[in-house]
């Protein structure tokens, strides 16, 4: 139990830290919503190292804390919807035996963006941002792939350590 609590703490802290690092890195593209999703490394890793339920808790804690710290209250709703949708999608892919961590990460990236767009539509009251969906899907695939690779190497390392 104590070990698990420590794991929760470490993963949550890492995820929040990643959120900060990401807030500091400027994005060279003028399209809102494009980002790397560094903290998804932690959530994806957590899914494999700790389990799916634990990853969900980490994801929620991360979103609430980092949104309040770095993005403000409206940002919270964007992130929260993105986190829920991407978690659901990642869970579905995680269940598939034939998909690796990279597939999970790519799905997560894409659905995070879609979730944010949906909330943006609700908040703005107009569907003017819907046309961003294809662009954000491609960026989500690219970012998710990169994040997936990083997670894969991290996972290999962690599993080696465990033995």
């Amino acid at each position: 139990m104590a070990k698990k609590t420590a794991y929760y703490g470490i993963f949550a802290a890492l995820a929040i830290l990643m959120g900060y690092v990401e807030a500091v890195i400027p994005m060279p593209v003028p399209i809102p919503g494009i980002k790397i999703g560094l903290s998804n490394i932690v959530v994806v890793l957590c899914m494999y190292v700790m389990g799916t339920k634990e990853a969900f808790y980490i994801s929620i804690v991360r979103v609430v804390i980092s949104a309040l710290l770095f993005r403000g209250f409206v940002g919270l709703w964007y992130s929260l919807s993105g986190a829920f949708l991407s978690y659901g999608a990642m869970l579905a892919v995680h269940r598939l035996k034939d998909a690796s961590i990279i597939g999970v990460s790519v799905t997560g990236g894409v659905f995070h963006n879609i979730g944010q767009i949906i909330v943006a539509c609700i908040i703005l009251g107009r569907n003017v941002v819907l046309y961003l969906i294809p662009i954000l899907m491609v960026s989500g695939v690219a970012a998710g792939f990169a994040i997936g690779l990083v997670s894969k190497y991290c996972l290999n390392y962690l599993e080696k350590k465990r033995e």
Partner: peptide, 15 residues
């Protein structure tokens, strides 16, 4: 794995 490629391909085609 193979399914990863399929997922990526499907998402890109959708986009």
């Amino acid at each position: 794995k193979k399914l990863d490629f399929i997922i990526i391909a499907v998402l890109l085609v959708c986009a």
